[in-house]
């Protein structure tokens, strides 16, 4: 009796493993079109790129599964671009909100189809993710408390700077930024002590709250603009240090064939560049057109 149970258990485990090995290679684009919705991951920590509207209710007649957010509950530039991409593919857009480092690590286990979350193209990320055509470009900019006493990048030598974890800003300091060389405009100041916080916003808040550990942070030009507009007592410090290309990312390890999907997304984005949709979205959310390649 006991032997039979043991054999049955082994057979069950073996069948599960074997069934997982088979299949694969199905075309993701077809799967999405048949399903009727595109699952986009984006981290709603970044206004104006991506944030939650607490007052909004779930879209009516949505085909999005219960545990995903709909367009309208999520708002922002990235969210509007995601909507435009989904429209271009002829499906509804739905949002998942995993932690940022879970998104950048790849191996999504087909939980979501694409990340449209202001992700910078880097060589490291390209190891795990495929990138579609960039939809905008962000300059990296230092921000400082208005009474910090710093006036140029050289003043930062030997000082303490706040950066968010797992960002390109951290990589730039560590000399690990692997964006194309012509996009890096300055080298980091030497002997800088880095304080890593979960997001850029925490850096800005800590500075505004008068924490004495640091009074300068590195983030995107747009985040600093929104910090200033939000009433934080910070100013821009020095010139733009590098330019990031931000593009939709697709998991390399998907169990589906993603070639046609990546191409279709790139085509939609090129169309959105050409017909001015991206420029007007950028003007709407950033009050400046960030969608033209600065090089």
């Amino acid at each position: 009796m006991r032997k039979i149970t043991l054999i049955l258990t082994i057979l069950m485990i073996a069948s599960v493993i074997l069934s997982a090995c088979g299949g694969g290679g199905e075309n993701l684009l077809d799967v999405i079109k048949e399903r009727g919705y595109l699952v986009v991951s984006t981290d709603p920590n970044y206004e104006p790129q991506s944030f939650l509207d607490p007052a909004a209710t779930r879209a009516e007649g949505t085909v999005c599964p219960e545990d995903m957010l709909t367009y309208g509950v999520m708002k922002g530039f990235d969210v509007d671009v995601a909507k435009a991409v989904a429209d271009g593919l002829g499906v509804e857009v739905c949002f998942a909100t995993p932690e940022w480092d879970v998104i950048t690590a790849g191996n999504w286990a087909d939980r979501w189809d694409i990340s449209i979350g202001s992700m910078t193209i880097t060589k490291t990320r390209q190891g795990a993710l495929d990138f579609a055509h960039p939809y905008y470009y962000t300059p990296a900019q230092f921000g400082a408390a208005s009474d910090s006493g710093y006036s140029s990048l050289d003043d930062l030598e030997g000082e303490t700077v706040c950066v968010a974890t797992a960002t390109t800003y951290l990589d730039w300091f560590n000399g690990e930024l692997t964006i194309p060389d012509e996009s890096i405009l300055s080298q980091p100041p030497s002997n800088v002590t880095l304080v890593e916080l979960p997001t850029d916003q925490e850096c800005a808040q800590a500075i505004a709250a008068g924490r004495p550990e640091f009074s300068v942070y590195l983030t995107s030009d747009t985040v600093i603009n929104s910090n200033i507009a939000g009433g934080l007592d910070v100013v821009k410090l020095g010139p733009v240090v590098f330019i990031e290309e931000l593009a939709p990312a697709i998991d390399k390890n998907s169990s589906y064939d993603t070639t046609a999907f990546t191409e279709a997304v790139s085509n939609v984005i090129e169309g959105l560049h050409a017909n001015g949709t991206l420029s007007s979205l950028s003007m709407q959310w950033f009050e400046v057109d960030l969608t033209k390649d600065p090089r």
Partner: peptide, 24 residues
């Protein structure tokens, strides 16, 4: 559990609106 991206409980919601409004 919110780390999965498909569950949005009390703390997750608090952190998102807190960060967005500088009111952590």
């Amino acid at each position: 559990v919110s780390a999965t991206g498909f569950v949005r409980e009390v703390l997750w919601r608090a952190q998102r609106v807190g960060r967005a409004n500088f009111r952590n």
